[in-house]
Design a protein around this nucleic acid. Structure first.
Lengths: 141, 141
DNA sequence: CTTGTACCTGTAGTAACTACAGGTATTACA
DNA sequence: TGTAATACCTGTAGTTACTACAGGTACAAG
């Protein structure tokens, strides 16, 4: 897994330290390794995973992408480009814009839901009666 | 499972017919039964599920709620009120408004994501060069 | 009588983790 | 040096809301 830029080798980290630095759960880090998002790191004599700067950067990348709502598959594609060391800005941009379009669709869907919920709940007087226009609206044939 | 209003007993439906009427997948209907969202219907001599108007209404209710983004647990709460035959309009309204608030939060989150993605991808010239500001932004420490 | 369709049960797979159970290794302190 | 706490290990199961089989039965039409 080649790094993008500015690779500085430094002291190694145990999984707990990496977890604290990146704010990624320990179990999640191991999970990423299992599914191939993170490489198998070298092990210490005791069998503990020892992480270097490379891993810290990669995990940070994954974390940021997740926060931006990319799925693991989308991130895999992004990392694939980077790993191949043969990506063009154009390809990355395309993936990013596709993702943005998906988000915009989701926003519109949710806004439509919100409108419907507002309409439905506006019908409700909020009284203590058992005849509820919300339930009626949902239950009717 | 008491009905809300206008219960008209009529001909019974096989699972395929119910599925077609409600546009809910057959496997999903059986799944709802397994997890207790739908009651166990009576069986025909051949062991086939036979559904009545009650089931059609209940499933329609579930479907509508799902389309409105309610989780199965939220729907369970709603159905619990209806099943208890002792709900007040107020309770239903509260659940609905809570759900609406959650949707509004989600919309805001997604809008923030969209803004960030726009900012990031605006930095990109879209050229064919391997130095990509998007990747840089995500990869940097 | 055979073919097709609709139904049946039960299990496994999806996404992205999280939460154990049960075991080892290292470190801190008395 | 002994022991107790902590950090790590592996492997499996649970979460949400389904979907997709595999392998089997029942019934109707030609």
């Amino acid at each position: 897994m080649p790094l993008h830029k500015n690779v500085i080798s430094s002291t190694s980290l145990a999984i707990g330290a990496l977890s604290k630095k990146t704010k990624v759960n320990i179990e999640t880090i191991r999970y990423y390794e299992r599914i191939g998002m993170m490489p198998h790191p070298p092990r210490s004599r005791a069998g503990h995973r020892t992480y270097a700067q490379v891993h810290l950067k990669r995990l940070t990348f994954i974390k940021r992408c997740r926060e931006l709502g990319f799925t693991l598959n989308e991130i895999r594609a992004l990392l694939g480009l980077v790993d191949g060391n043969d990506y063009s800005c154009q390809e990355v941009r395309t993936l990013t814009l596709q993702h943005k379009a998906a988000i915009q669709t989701k926003i519109k869907d949710l806004q439509r839901l919100e409108t419907t919920l507002t309409q439905i709940s506006d019908k409700c007087t909020g009284g203590n009666i058992p005849e509820c226009p919300i339930i009626d609206a949902l239950y009717a044939e």
